[in-house]
Amino acid sequence: MSLNTISNIGVNIQEKATVIWNVADMLRGPFKPHEYGLVILPMTVVKRFNDCLMPTYNEVQETYQNVKHLAVIDGFLTTASGYQFYNISKFTFDSLLADPQNIEANFRDYLAGFSSNIQDILAKFDFDNIIKRMVESNTLYLVIREFNTPKGYLGPDKISAVDCGYIFEDLVKRFSESYGEEAGAHFTSRDIIYLMTDILLNEADLATEGNITVYDMT
């Protein structure tokens, strides 16, 4: 991979992460700068899941109606969604915004529709308490609206799983820095990883040596 390619990847990831992080403008006042990540990180995860599932939304809804009386339904729903997760809620980000008066109840219904593996992820974010704070500060609707704009789109047709991971890492870095922490304590940035790989494989003949094993002491 050339240095230009590495540079372009880094720029694209940072640009998308910046766009997402700028949603924090909606949070000024009710949330302190070091708390922005408490909203931005889980919302990024939820929006990624939402955008992944939208193409099979109708299939999942139809399948759920057909199998909801059965004792075990996960297999049917993951097959319908095309992923190892799904959402059976009738709500989407579009329909949530269409009913601002009931945004909290509808958003909670939307989140409750996710499969159990996604529920575990949301529980680790302590997202329930964050939603309460957004409702009290009248920012829940605004945040959902911002994430539903074209700039907040995180679908796999535009952003690969790898790039989405890099974007999330960049957001974690910004969150850490807002705490005044060292970002390096949480992850190694992409440019450093590329440089380390180039140094390690500098004298390797990849064409004839085949697989290369490298010991990572971390």
Rank of each mutant, 00 (worst) to 15 (best):
F125E: 03
K151R: 05
N202V: 10
F127Q: 06
Q101M: 14
T188M: 02
V135A: 15
N129T: 06
S176T: 05
K151P: 04
I159L: 07
R190L: 15
Y166L: 09
D191I: 13
L195S: 10
R108H: 14
G180A: 00
P150K: 04
P100Y: 13
N129S: 15
L195G: 15
D163N: 12
P150T: 03
T208D: 10
L206S: 07
T139I: 02
F125G: 10
T208Y: 07
L195H: 11
T92F: 06
L206H: 07
N138Q: 09
D163A: 14
D170C: 13
Y194S: 12
R133D: 12
G184E: 01
G180E: 01
D205L: 00
R145K: 15
I167Y: 02
F114T: 04
M134W: 06
S160M: 06
K90Y: 14
G152Y: 00
F175P: 09
S178C: 02
G155W: 00
G184P: 04
L111G: 04
A161L: 09
V143N: 02
F91Y: 10
P156T: 00
G210S: 12
N138H: 10
S95W: 00
L195F: 15
A105T: 14
L200F: 03
K151I: 04
G113A: 08
I192M: 06
Y179L: 04
G184Y: 00
F147S: 01
K173R: 14
A98P: 08
E181P: 04
A204N: 07
S189Y: 09
I193L: 14
D205E: 04
D157R: 10
N138A: 12
I130Y: 02
E169L: 11
I167E: 03
Q101C: 09
A204K: 07
I199Q: 08
L142R: 12
L206R: 04
E209F: 10
L154K: 01
R145G: 11
G180C: 01
G165Q: 04
C164W: 05
L195N: 14
K158T: 09
N211D: 15
D191M: 15
K124Y: 15
F91V: 11
K158Q: 11
D109R: 04
E104Y: 01
V135C: 05
N102P: 06
M134P: 08
D191T: 05
Y179R: 04
M134Y: 01
N129C: 12
N148L: 01
S95Y: 03
I131C: 10
L111I: 11
S176L: 13
L200R: 11
M196P: 11
